[in-house]
């Protein structure tokens, strides 16, 4: 059995790590590089930086964050959000990203996937699909954090992006994102069975059993976690800086924990996966958690 990847997802707004509910209602959590370093040492298999505002204004701070992170963190770094041109992709790769995640630009011009895959290789191109379940039980593709309806049916679009040369698909349930109620297992399973490329499940993890379920029932090849591990970082670190000028910080001050969300470390997640009979990159005796120790 192959090894499932646990990817730490960090949503970026300007220079800060933020967390939203249903991709809205943002809270400032801190500086992304600090979280990234902690997750690296805790055994994250990949990092995923998502620029959720993706304005031209914020782009320079995103490139700075990628550059600083890639000097210290030697695992794959995925970057997504607002990448519209081949040049945009080139810029984040040159800053130190290894893979990019495309969404809106791919919907607007599907041939962009083919162009990007030809230029940078399929393994560099992940297509992110945001899905909402309609009343009739059909899944449709949305963009802009679930605000824009595209008219595309999810599983058809998944097959199309695969044929265009995407190397992986990231599937997000907008309904579940940030709620801690679990991944959408039906959605993930259907996408995973529709395409021969790896599928990353995104959005909804709140408890350890959700992670186990999305692999066993959802057939996910990889999964992202955000809230669960962010709250663990906050629990173990003192927030020194004052972020009040940069957004909603009430949450931070109170160290308020969402009742639905279990706060766990990446090590605990991986240990749980192993105990559930799911293979992943995990070592006992905390060996993987040590910072660089080169002989």
């Amino acid at each position: 059995m192959k090894n499932v990847r646990v990817i730490a997802r960090l949503d970026i707004k300007g220079p800060n790590l933020v967390k939203g509910i249903h991709l809205e209602g943002l809270r400032v959590l801190g500086k992304p590089e600090h979280f990234a370093q902690y997750y690296y040492e805790n055994g994250a298999d990949e990092l995923f930086y998502m620029d959720i505002v993706a304005s031209l204004y914020g782009r320079n701070s995103l490139l700075d964050i990628i550059e600083r992170t890639s000097k210290e963190v030697f695992i794959p770094i995925i970057v997504g959000g607002g990448l519209r041109t081949i040049e945009d992709i080139n810029a984040v790769l040159r800053a130190g990203a290894d893979k990019v995640s495309l969404n809106t630009a791919a919907i607007k011009n599907p041939d962009f996937i083919r162009q990007a895959a030809n230029r940078f290789g399929s393994s560099t191109i992940i297509v992110s699909i945001e899905a909402i379940k309609e009343k009739e039980g059909q899944y449709f593709v949305y963009t802009d954090n679930g605000r824009e309806y595209t008219g595309k049916e999810v599983f058809q679009w998944a097959r199309e992006v695969c044929e265009l040369g995407a190397g992986e698909i990231m599937i997000t349930s907008v309904d579940r994102e940030g709620t801690g109620t679990g991944y959408d297992l039906e959605l993930t399973k259907k996408v995973a069975e529709s395409v021969p490329i790896p599928v990353i499940a995104c959005g909804g993890a709140g408890r350890l059993e959700h992670i186990e379920n999305v692999v066993i029932e959802g057939k996910a090849d990889a999964l992202t976690v955000a809230s669960m591990i962010h709250y663990d970082f906050i629990k173990h670190h003192t927030i020194e800086a004052d972020y009040s000028a940069e957004g909603n910080v009430e949450f931070l001050k109170k160290k308020m924990i969402f009742s639905k969300i279990e706060t766990v470390s990446l090590e605990t997640i991986k240990s749980h996966l192993m105990n559930s009979g799911i293979n992943c990159r995990f070592k006992h005796h905390g060996e993987i958690n040590k910072p660089l120790n080169i002989c």
Partner: peptide, 18 residues
């Protein structure tokens, strides 16, 4: 090969830790 010895569909490329 996309189909492994048990006739099950394999995910190609291999992406991940081994």
């Amino acid at each position: 090969k996309l189909e492994n010895s048990e006739g099950r569909v394999s995910k190609v490329p291999q992406v991940g830790w081994n």
